[in-house]
Amino acid sequence: MLRYGLRRLGWAVPTVIGIVAVGFVLTHILPGDPVQAMIGEFPAPEGYAEHIREKFGLDRPLPVQFWLFLTSLLRGDLGYSFAHNAPVTDIIFTRAGATLALMIPSLVLASVLGVVFGAIGARRAGSRSDVAVTAFTVSGQSVPVFWLAMMLILVFSVRLGLFPVTGMTSISAPESGFGRFTDFLRHLVLPMVTLTLAYMTVVARVARSAMIESLQEDYILTAEAKGLKNGEILRKHVLRNSLPPIITVIGFNFGYCLTGAVLTETVFGWPGIGSLFIQAVTNRDYPVIEGVFVLSAIAVVLVNLIVDLLYALINPKIRRAHAVA
């Protein structure tokens, strides 16, 4: 098991370096001068720009810069953001916290509801409830998520005044305790509903297909012959056998949640990684853009690790196959 995990991790290393490199190259060939962005919107005093370039190693050849970037990355140092006046690591940690606070509840809810809906659809394929589930999931995958978010704001915040429009906390919220938590919850509802809907439809669709697939296997006939009820068959046999694709899709969702929901966070003003990234691109905040790419790389490792390990856990065959190979 451990060796299998290590092997998969070993595979991830070149991918990670690749993503970090893509991020690095992209940011360094982006048009626009980072030094001018640091100095501001006026010409710098004589020699000042050169001084900054030298100080941050921007005058060196690109491969050298990449090497320096990688080595400081290994020390956990992502550089300094001038737009935010803070070390990138600090910014990313704060923002990642906000992103996870939104993502984890959304994803948990979406996974549970998705499997439930998938099962409802699969239980009687072609029935009215199945048609409803299918219609729902296809719609969910076709709706632009940011538009859904806008419509939720329009209805629930503007017309009904139930939830705040934007942000994660109110300034006036208590510093700590229950009051702060309820304030956070009020802000959480709409973005969470948006993301839950978006993720749930994906999970439900995969779950439904996978379960229908399992239902066509021979052992289901056997189970039916034994006189088991549909519900029991679903729970005991179908669910277990359709787990791998469901786990894959849920694992993917969780892995990528680190990089945040760019569109949803933008619409709701959620101070997470996604909105940070868009701001960073606008401001040419190179260290932050690179930081987000590093985060993406970590996400990829996580996805692979989570999915592979879960696969192996569910399906002993995979484990053994790899042990032999």
Binding site: E41, F42, A83, V165, V267, F268, G269, Q279, N283
Partner: peptide, 21 residues
Amino acid sequence: VTERWIRHPRGMRLGQAARIA
């Protein structure tokens, strides 16, 4: 001196939603 004050340097794009808010 060519400094300029008018543009909102940060979060301009996010500011769109502020208008709504």
